[in-house]
Amino acid sequence: MQDAETTFPPLIDKAYVLTGATASGKSSLGLDWAERVGGEILSLDSIAVYRDMDIGTAKPTADQIARVPHHLINLVDPAEEFSVACYMRAAHQAVNEICSRGKVPIFVGGTPMFLKGILRGFDPGPPADWEFRKSVERDVQEHGVEALRERLRQVDPLAEHRINTNDVRRMIRALEVSRATGVPISHRQIQFEKQVSPDQCNVNALMWPRDQLHARINERVEAMFQAGLVGEVQSLLDRPGGMSRTARQAVGYREVIEHLDGTIDLDTAKEQVAAHTRRLARRQETWFRSFKEIRHIEMSEGCDPEQALQQLQQR
């Protein structure tokens, strides 16, 4: 395990990137792209790193893996925690191995914090202090998010300005880092705010009209339940150690856990998975627009995937 202070440089000088919101079609297009350019795919998904969390993450099938090698999936058991630092460590190793074989590393996925690490590099900072986090979360429940924002404003006004209004998790992390190190997280991350021109890299995001993307999400959610998502979650919970905090909070899994706990019925669970996935897609697209490195590829129903593929290959 590397020291918590180790920083990871960006990887876009060595790799291509294809991102997009959930259900945007990036996995299928990424396979075609990899075959055209002699590439290997690296998953850019924070939940696909967990073994046997397959249905809810739309992991590649055996046939897809036979077509193109895939990396950064099935790295740890669901009972384990997995951080951005863990991901960056594994990503750097995988990219170096792929390049040594003369292949092209292609990151495909939509987890924003993983994407930012690939584009800008990453400073892991101190390890998580779960007792401190629980204490702050209790304060948020009692006093509200605005009180949390004011607390962060006193400690790190730049971080308070940058973090989205309701992103409680990132605000707590900012407080945690300042408390543990004595240095505001915004000061530590200055070197990771540097951007390169989209002409200097090959980073792309698939962008869909909102109504069409929502329809695709609804179809995917229904397919996940038909494929046995409830049974998958039950089998994970029944294992020794169960599921980690991170694994349990994944969209699609946390709602099914509530259903299995008897908190909500199955129809409500489906509705919440779809609603939360649509909300996640909006947050993903907000992140994509904030990265100046990314070029957008406009998609729509009935469009020829070959046209999108040609745009990827022209860069």
Rank of each mutant, 00 (worst) to 15 (best):
T246K: 15
L29S: 10
G302L: 01
I118R: 07
S27P: 12
E285P: 08
E285K: 05
E142N: 13
R245Q: 00
D167Q: 14
R67S: 13
G252Y: 03
L11I: 02
F291I: 01
R210G: 03
L29I: 14
E131K: 10
Q307E: 12
P209T: 08
A94V: 04
L18N: 04
Q313N: 14
R169W: 07
V108E: 13
G38F: 00
A215I: 00
A281C: 08
S46H: 02
I257Q: 04
R151D: 13
R173S: 07
P124A: 00
T6P: 11
Q191A: 13
S244I: 01
F288C: 05
A4N: 10
R289L: 12
A90M: 04
V17C: 07
Q249E: 13
R151Y: 08
P127Q: 10
R36W: 04
A250M: 04
K292S: 15
D238I: 02
M113H: 09
N166W: 15
V273E: 13
A227L: 01
R162M: 06
Q64N: 11
L309P: 00
Q314S: 14
D199N: 14
E97L: 09
A274C: 07
R149S: 13
H214Y: 11
D129W: 07
E137L: 06
P240M: 09
A308Y: 13
T111V: 06
V95L: 05
L18I: 13
T268L: 15
P124N: 02
A62D: 11
R295E: 12
Q249F: 13
R36K: 15
E131Y: 09
G125S: 03
A91N: 04
E306V: 05
A94F: 05
E255F: 00
N218P: 02
A94L: 02
D63P: 00
N204S: 07
E81Y: 07
R170S: 12
F122V: 11
R133Y: 03
R170K: 14
R216W: 06
A159R: 02
I98A: 08
I294W: 08
L229F: 02
L115W: 08
W208L: 06
I185C: 04
G228L: 15
E293I: 01
R151L: 15
Q307P: 01
L280V: 14
A66L: 04
L148G: 09
A269Y: 13
V177N: 10
A91K: 05
W208D: 03
L229H: 10
E142H: 12
V256K: 06
T6K: 07
T6Q: 06
L158D: 12
W208C: 03
A274M: 10
P78Q: 08
V68S: 11
N96L: 07
P60N: 12
V17W: 05
V68F: 05
G228M: 14
N166T: 13
D3A: 11
V168P: 04
Q272P: 00
A21R: 07
L11F: 01
Y16I: 02
Q2S: 10
Q2T: 11
K26R: 03
V37K: 00
R36L: 09
P184A: 05
A66R: 10
T22H: 10
L158V: 15
I172R: 05
M171Y: 12
C201S: 06
A62L: 09
G25S: 05
E232G: 10
V95N: 05
N202Q: 14
G110Q: 14
H143M: 04
Q212E: 15
E301Q: 06
R245D: 09
D45C: 01
N166R: 11
N166D: 15
T22A: 08
Q234I: 03
A274S: 15
I55A: 07
